[in-house]
């Protein structure tokens, strides 16, 4: 593995009681790419992201993000996180939610908050309470909360769940623009057409990394026409 990796994890094990959620996993993510964690529900994607963020600690193994050992408080101010749940305060407005997270990250300024809300195309509803928004709009606000402090690394846990195809395409276009700006993105998904848009993919199954590479490489290695087929072949091996 190259030493200038944005994320480097070695021998990761995470147990919850008798359940082994992550089982001896090694991972390397290059900077400025979108790395997709692909796997079915319960494969360990969310646990892996929480480990990489330092929200939970591994039972075994080590993680280095941007050269710093996780968990690291300085690192957290440079990372953005969009959890699977919306993680918004429903009784606050869009602006109040985004401002709150900006303040937590010590990055608050009214123009920056406004700009971030515009970025996710929510300027017209900036003063609306989140509880009055549609599911797709809430997802956009949730993304704005993860982006407001201009993170250099972004963790997205199934960011397009319940989002219509048009908005999903907008999200992915935006992720690509962030990549161009040098932001490294780790995204959990089990949607195959989204996985195709990732720079590299890691196929997770029962807490293990089955295979790793670009979508084309994975298809070729498995001798499969689609990623879904490739995934099924890898998991049956």
């Amino acid at each position: 593995m190259p030493t200038d990796l944005a994320i480097q994890a070695k021998g990761l094990v995470k147990r919850f009681g008798s359940v082994v959620a992550v089982n001896g996993l090694d991972l390397g993510v290059e900077p400025g790419i979108t790395y997709g964690l692909l796997g079915p529900n319960g494969s360990g994607k969310t646990t892996l992201v929480r480990l990489l963020l330092g929200v939970i600690l591994p039972n075994e193994g080590s993680i280095t993000v941007m050269g710093r050992r996780v968990p690291d408080r300085v690192l957290r101010s440079q990372m953005g996180y969009m959890p699977q749940s919306l993680a918004l305060y429903e009784d606050l407005t869009v602006t109040e939610n985004v401002s709150f997270y900006a303040r937590l990250m010590d990055a608050y300024s009214p123009p920056r908050v406004e700009e971030t809300i515009q970025l996710v195309d929510m300027a017209s509803r900036a003063r609306s309470a989140v509880s009055t928004l549609s599911g797709g709009m809430k997802r956009r606000v949730s993304l704005a909360c993860a982006l407001v402090h201009r993170p250099v690394m972004l963790f997205l846990d199934e960011p397009t769940v319940g989002v219509d195809p048009q908005l999903r395409a907008q999200f992915w276009d935006h992720f690509q623009r962030l990549n161009q700006q040098g932001v490294t993105i780790v995204v959990c998904t089990h949607v195959m057409d989204e996985a195709e848009r990732c720079t590299r993919l890691g196929l997770l199954h029962q807490g293990r990394l089955l295979a790793e590479g670009t979508a084309r490489e994975l298809r070729a290695r498995a001798g499969a026409e689609t990623l879904e087929e490739a995934f099924l072949r890898f998991s049956s091996q």
Partner: peptide
Amino acid sequence: AYGTLERLAASPLT
């Protein structure tokens, strides 16, 4: 319940 604690846990907040 709303997952905001998860986001707080991932922030620099102690």
